[in-house]
Design a protein around this nucleic acid. Structure first.
Length: 154
DNA sequence: GCCAACGTTGGC
DNA sequence: GCCAACGTTGGC
């Protein structure tokens, strides 16, 4: 079982949006980066857990957890001309992009902010905190997962 | 809005 | 295959 971190801009899709979906789940669409796609397709498994990270907002940070409930399948938004994730190079035969389904598990009482994560020396080697890493999906080690869980107020 | 750090594209 | 130009991400 693997751990992950999924970034989303809360203006576009927040953890509250996920919680209010039917069944508290939704597809994680719009991934248009090959590294992120490959990890999602090759390594992300049903039952894996992920942090939900809010990016490009007033207080960026981890706001809760989700579970991967469906493994990678074709991202149909790439074929939808009206979608902002439409990709002219994607086709039915070669959809190019994929997505997974995630289910809301928990929203933290308080956000674990990026600033707090940076202040924690034990997280110094975390991918998220490394310079220049902008991937919207990244793996989290079991060690880091535990440390961050310990930073959460009940 | 700025800018660093990537990733992608396309001419050669 | 190289590399310059361009686009994107995301913190600040």
């Amino acid at each position: 079982m693997n751990y992950w971190l999924l970034k989303s801009e809360p203006d576009a899709f927040s953890i509250d949006d996920l919680r209010s979906m039917p069944g508290k789940k939704d597809h994680w669409d719009g991934i248009r980066n090959y590294q992120a796609r490959n990890m999602m397709r090759d390594d992300m498994r049903k039952g894996d857990m992920a942090f939900f990270y809010h990016s490009s907002c007033a207080v960026p940070g981890i706001v809760g957890t989700v579970e991967i409930v469906k493994e990678a399948y074709d991202d149909f938004t790439a074929l939808d001309r009206k979608s902002k994730y439409f990709d002219a190079k994607a086709s039915r035969d070669n959809p190019r992009w994929c997505m997974v389904d995630v289910k809301f598990k928990k929203k933290f009482k308080e956000i674990v902010s990026l600033a707090e994560l940076k202040e924690n020396n034990k997280l110094a080697d975390m991918t998220l905190l490394k310079k220049g890493n902008r991937l919207s999906i990244m793996p989290v080690s079991a060690k880091h997962w535990k440390i961050i869980q310990s930073m959460v107020d009940a």
